[in-house]
Design a protein around this nucleic acid. Structure first.
Lengths: 346, 346
DNA sequence: CATATCGAATGAATCGTTTTATCACGCTGA
DNA sequence: TCAGCGTGATAAAACGATTCATTCGATATG
C-alpha cells in the first residue's frame, strides 16, 4: 500500500532542498548554457535514484518533447484484419525491428482510416511523433491531410501526393519477372487474379500483366482477368470460375500469394494438377509458400526490409536527419518452386 | 503553410465568445451537474467543427484521464524477435481484436523487460492505462513490481504472485492429451524436446511428460529429455542428437511446434521417415502445422482467444468492471494429423 | 421586501514537465 | 565605492485540457 501517486520532479526537488528547475536541468540532457554545481548535481541524482523517480512521459510530451513513439495506421481494414494479413504482418515485423533499434515504441491505431474528416483527429492528438501508413488506397486522403497538419508520415506502398515519403516494391519489375517466366515456359493462355482494385500495387500488377501479354503477342482475353480482392474466399471463387471456362487458362498470375494458394486449392478441387494442368505464380513470398507440398513459385518482395526502411525513414525525419530519397523502391525477385511448369499440351 | 500549432480548446472558446470551461463541458461527456444552455452548446459545437478542433490526448492524459491505450510487453525477448514468434503473434492478433472492439489502441514496448529496477520506469510513465505481459519467465519480477506501483496488469501465461490477472492454456491437460495419444499408439520409447527452462509453460509440459511416462509404466530415460529452448536452431541439434542415440526413441513429444518441425527436419536429414520411423507431436498448432506435407499432429491451444481474453480482462479492470475469475484457463485439444503412427517395430 | 434557490457560465487551480527570464552573490578591476 | 561579470540557482510562464468553487442574475419563496 505505497503512495498511489508516483513521485514527481517536485518531490525530488523538495527532498533535495532545491528548486524544481534545477532538478529538471540536472535530470534531462541539461542544457549547456545553464550551470549546476557538482555538489547539487550529485545530490539531485542521488535523491532521484533513491526515490525511484521516473519522469512522466505525458507531461514531457505536453511540453512538446518527442514521445519516442511511432504510430502505425492501416488504410483498408481495421487493425484486427490487417494484422492477420501476412503482407502487413511481415512489414510490421520490420517496423518493430527498426523502432526497437532506435529506441522507439510503436502504437497501433486500431481503427482504420475513414477519411480525414473522421479520422485525422486520432493522429493529431499527440500520441505519436509520426505515422506509418500501410496499404493506403489510391482514393485515400490520408497523405494530403497529414501533410496539411504537418504530421510526419511515411507510406508503405505507393502514394499520389508529391513529397510524401514512401517505400515500395517495384511492382512493374515484379510482374515482368512473373510474366516472363510464364511466357518463357511456353504458356499462351495466361489469366490474372487481380487484387483489390483501389490499391495501387494491385493496379500496377494488373496493368503490367496486360502490357506483358501484348508484348508477348498473346491474346488478352477479358474473361481472363478477374478482379478484385486479396482475400482467399473470393479468390477461390474467381479461380474456380476461371478454371471452369470452356477453354481454360494453362497458367495464372495471381496478384498475391493468398490468391495463388486459393487458385491451387480450386484447381485441386476441380481435379486439375499443379503444375501439370495449371501453372500458378504468386506475389509476396509469404512463409507458407515455401513449405507448401508443391512449393509456390512467386515474386518475392523484401517486406520485412520494406517495413524496416519505412520506420527508419520516419525516424530520420523526426530526428532531423535526411530520410533519403523517396519513393524508395525495392527490387523483387522471382522464386521458382514447383507450381509452374511448361503447359501440358506443348 | 497553415498554422503549425493546432487549434486548442481555448481557441474554440475564444471564437465562440465564451469561457474555456464551458467549452470543455460541452465537448466532453458534459458532467451532469453542470448545465449549459442549448444555444451555447450549439454554438460551441458548431465552432469546434468549423475550426476542426481535436482535443489533445496528451493534455487529457496529464489530467488523469484514461489514455485508451493498452501496453504490450514481452518477457523474454525484445519485441523484434518476440513478434516473429508465431505463438506471440497469434496472441497479439487476439489482443488487437479485443482492443479494436473496445476502442483502445495498443502500444508495443519494444524493449524487453530487464528487471524492475531498469524497466519499470517505462511502464510508469503514463503512456498506457494498463499492461499485457506475454511470456513472463518464472523468475521475472514484473508482476510484483507492477502490482506494487498499481499499474493494471494481465499476464498471458502462468504467474506466481497471487491476485494477478492471467490467462493461460491448461498445459497439464495438453501434455496428457499428447502423451495419451503416443502411448495409445503403442510407443514405449518416447523422448521430449523441452522448451525454455524458465518459462512456466515449458516447465509444466516437461513435468507432466515425466509423470505420464511413469503412469504408463514406461522407462523415463534421462537422455530422452533434452532441454531447453523454443527455437528451431537448438531444436534441430537436440533432435539430431536424440535420433543418433544407439537406441533411439520412436516418438518425440516436442514442447512446441517449432521444435516439432525441427525434429521432423532432423529425422529427414538422418534418413528416417515420419511417421514410419518416428512419430512427432507438437504443441500450439501454428498455421504452418496444417499445411505441412505430412500435417503435424499437435496440441492446439486457442492462442487468439487467449490474447483476446487477456485484453478483455484488462479493459474490464480499467473500466471498473469485473474482470472475471483468474487465472482464466483454456482447454487445449489434440489435432491428429499425419506425423504420428504406431511404432514400426510393433 | 428579504432571502433562498436555481440555471448558466466562468476563473483559476491542477496535472508534471521544460525553459526563459531573472536574481542573488561574491569577486575583479578601475 | 561602484559598475560589470560570471556562477548557480530559481520563479514563473507555458503546454492543453478538466473541474472545483464561485459568481451573477433572475426567479421563486416566506
Amino acid at each position: 500500500m505505497r503512495q498511489s501517486r508516483s513521485v514527481s520532479l517536485r518531490d525530488v526537488a523538495e527532498r533535495a532542498g532545491i528548486g524544481v528547475a534545477t532538478a529538471s536541468t540536472v535530470l534531462n540532457g541539461s542544457r549547456s548554457n545553464i550551470r549546476v554545481s557538482d555538489a547539487t548535481r550529485a545530490r539531485v541524482l542521488e535523491v532521484a535514484r533513491e526515490m525511484d523517480y521516473q519522469p512522466n512521459a505525458i507531461a514531457r510530451a505536453l511540453k512538446g518533447q518527442p514521445t519516442k513513439t511511432l504510430g502505425v495506421l492501416f488504410g483498408v481494414e481495421g487493425a484486427t484484419v490487417a494484422v492477420a494479413n501476412s503482407y502487413v504482418f511481415t512489414v510490421w515485423q520490420g517496423i518493430i525491428a527498426s523502432a526497437e533499434a532506435a529506441g522507439y515504441n510503436v502504437t497501433v491505431f486500431t481503427e482504420m482510416w475513414r477519411g480525414a474528416a473522421r479520422s485525422s483527429g486520432m493522429l493529431r492528438d499527440g500520441r505519436a511523433d509520426g505515422i506509418i501508413a500501410i496499404a493506403v488506397t489510391t482514393d485515400s486522403d490520408i497523405a494530403t491531410s497529414l501533410v496539411e497538419v504537418r504530421i510526419p508520415l511515411v507510406v508503405i506502398g505507393s502514394v499520389h501526393g508529391g513529397g510524401v515519403l514512401s517505400v515500395d516494391t517495384d511492382n512493374v519489375r515484379g510482374t515482368e519477372l512473373a510474366m516472363t517466366h510464364l511466357v518463357g515456359l511456353g504458356h499462351t493462355r495466361i489469366a490474372h487474379l487481380a487484387g483489390r482494385p483501389n490499391l495501387s500495387s494491385a493496379i500496377e500488377r494488373r496493368v503490367v500483366f496486360h502490357r506483358e501479354l501484348i508484348r508477348a503477342g498473346l491474346p488478352d482475353l477479358p474473361e481472363f482477368t478477374l478482379p478484385g480482392s486479396f482475400e482467399p474466399g473470393p479468390g477461390y471463387d474467381y479461380a474456380r470460375r476461371l478454371l471452369s471456362l470452356p477453354s481454360r487458362p494453362t497458367a495464372i498470375f495471381a496478384a498475391n500469394d493468398t490468391l495463388a494458394l486459393a487458385a491451387i486449392e480450386a484447381a485441386k478441387d476441380l481435379g486439375l494438377s499443379v503444375p501439370g494442368d495449371l501453372s500458378v505464380v504468386g506475389f509476396d513470398d509469404r512463409p507458407i509458400a515455401a513449405v507448401l507440398s508443391a512449393g509456390l513459385t512467386t515474386v518475392r518482395q523484401p517486406l520485412m526490409e520494406i517495413g524496416a526502411t519505412g520506420a527508419e525513414m520516419l525516424i530520420s525525419q523526426l530526428e532531423g536527419r535526411d530520410p533519403g530519397p523517396t519513393p524508395r523502391i525495392f527490387e523483387p525477385n522471382l522464386v521458382i518452386r514447383h507450381s509452374t511448369a511448361p503447359p501440358r499440351a506443348l
